[in-house]
C-alpha cells in the first residue's frame, strides 16, 4: 500500500464525514437531500476502495439513486401545505419555494451539560467501536469455506455464490421484505392506484426523446448485468434497479406505464421473485434436499432463473415505490382524507 493510496483513502473518508455532517446540519431540506445523494455516491467510491465493487454498484443504484429520487419526490410534497385539496391552487409558483421545508431552528440541546454529556457519549461509542474492531481475531472469516465450495456453487463470482446459493435463504426473505415494504406503503397511502401525476412543469421534448432511445439500451444493460453476475460483479439487485430506473424515467417523461399495464400483471410482477424462490425451495424439499439447495450440476441454470425472476420483481417493486408515492398527492381530491379535521396549520 503506497502513500498515494493512503492519501486517497483519507481524502475519501474526510469527504464522507464532511458530506454526512453537511447533510445533517443543512437548514434547508433540499440541501440535505442533495448532500445525501452526494454522500451515497462518495460511499460507492469507498466501496470500490474496499474491494467491494458489487456493493458499490448496489449503493450507487439503490442507496443514492432510488432513495434520492424518493427523497426529492417527498420534498415536493412537504414543500406545500397539506391543504392542497380542491379549494386551493396546488401549483402556485410561490408555494413551492416557501420555507415549510426549512427547519425552523437548528438542532440544539437545552443546556450545556446535556450537550457535553451527549458529545462525550458519542465519542465513547466511537472509541468502543474502533477498539472492538482492533481487537477482533484475524481469522479471515468465511473466506476459506467460500473459496472451497465455489466450484460446486454453479457460478464463478464468490459474492453471487453467497447471495444466491450458500445464503439463498437471505435473498429469498429479502425479496419478501421488499414486498412487505410495498404492502406497507399501500397501507400508509390508501388505495389510490398508480395514476399519473399532473406535472406542473412538463419535462420538455428532450427527455421523452432520450428515454425512448435509451429504454431498450437500459433493459439490455440490465440483462447484461444479470448475466455478468455469474463471473463478475453484477447480479439481480443491480439489474432490478436498472429496470426500475427505466420505469421511473418513462414516468418522469410523461409516458404512462403503470396505468396501461393490467392489474394482474402488476400483482404477478410484484410477487414473481418471491414465488420463484419458493417453487425452487419446495422442489428441493420434495427431492429430499435442504430448502433452497440446488443440485450442483444444474446450479448455474437454476441460479440464473431465480436471479432473473428476482430482478424482475425487484424492478417492479422499486418502480412501484416511486409510482405509488408519486401519484398519491394527486389524489387529495378523493375521499380518504377529505372529511378529517385539520388540527394544525404548518404555514403559521
Amino acid at each position: 500500500m503506497t502513500l498515494l493510496d493512503q492519501v486517497f483513502d483519507i481524502v475519501v473518508c474526510l469527504l464522507l464525514l464532511v458530506l454526512a455532517w453537511r447533510t445533517l446540519s443543512a437548514t434547508h431540506l433540499y440541501q440535505s437531500a442533495i448532500f445525501f445523494i452526494a454522500f451515497g455516491l462518495t460511499m460507492a467510491l469507498a466501496w470500490v476502495r474496499l474491494a467491494a465493487p458489487d456493493v458499490a454498484l448496489a449503493e450507487a443504484a439503490i442507496g443514492a439513486g432510488l432513495l434520492g429520487v424518493l427523497l426529492v419526490d417527498s420534498l415536493r410534497v412537504f414543500a406545500r401545505p397539506p391543504e392542497t385539496g380542491r379549494d386551493s391552487e396546488p401549483n402556485k409558483p410561490e408555494s413551492r419555494d416557501n420555507d415549510v421545508t426549512t427547519s425552523r431552528r437548528r438542532p440544539q440541546f437545552n443546556s450545556a451539560v446535556a450537550s457535553v454529556t451527549a458529545g462525550a457519549g458519542c465519542l465513547f461509542l466511537a472509541y468502543v467501536l474502533v477498539a472492538a474492531i482492533h481487537d477482533l481475531p484475524d481469522g479471515g472469516g468465511l473466506t476459506a469455506q467460500a473459496a472451497e465450495n465455489l466450484s460446486r456453487s454453479g457460478v464463478e463470482h464468490p459474492v453471487t455464490a453467497v447471495l444466491l446459493n450458500f445464503r439463498g435463504f437471505d435473498t429469498w426473505l429479502e425479496v419478501g421484505v421488499l414486498f412487505l415494504a410495498m404492502l406497507g406503503i399501500f397501507c400508509a397511502g390508501g388505495l389510490v392506484g398508480f395514476s399519473e401525476t399532473e406535472n406542473p412543469d412538463p419535462p420538455g421534448p428532450l427527455l421523452s426523446w432520450l428515454i425512448r432511445g435509451l429504454a431498450p439500451v437500459m433493459i439490455l444493460t440490465a440483462a447484461y448485468l444479470l448475466w455478468l453476475g455469474k463471473l463478475a460483479p453484477g447480479g439481480a439487485f443491480q439489474a432490478g434497479i436498472l429496470l426500475a430506473a427505466v420505469g421511473i424515467l418513462l414516468r418522469l417523461a410523461g409516458i404512462p406505464l403503470m396505468d396501461r399495464v393490467p392489474r394482474t400483471v402488476i400483482k404477478l410482477g410484484l410477487t414473481f421473485g418471491f414465488g420463484t424462490f419458493l417453487v425452487f425451495g419446495i422442489i428441493a424439499l420434495l427431492a429430499d434436499k435442504a430448502f433452497l439447495e440446488y443440485p450442483s450440476e444444474w446450479a448455474g441454470e437454476v441460479i440464473l432463473l431465480v436471479e432473473a425472476a428476482a430482478a424482475i420483481s425487484i424492478g417492479f417493486t422499486a418502480f412501484a415505490f416511486f409510482a405509488y408515492l408519486n401519484s398519491r398527492d394527486q389524489s387529495t381530491g378523493n375521499g380518504d382524507t377529505a372529511g378529517q379535521p385539520r388540527e394544525t396549520n404548518p404555514s403559521q
Partner: peptide, 9 residues
C-alpha cells in the same frame, strides 16, 4: 484469494 464474500453479500 478474494475478500470475504459473506459480509459483502
Amino acid at each position: 484469494e478474494f475478500a470475504d464474500p459473506v459480509p459483502h453479500a
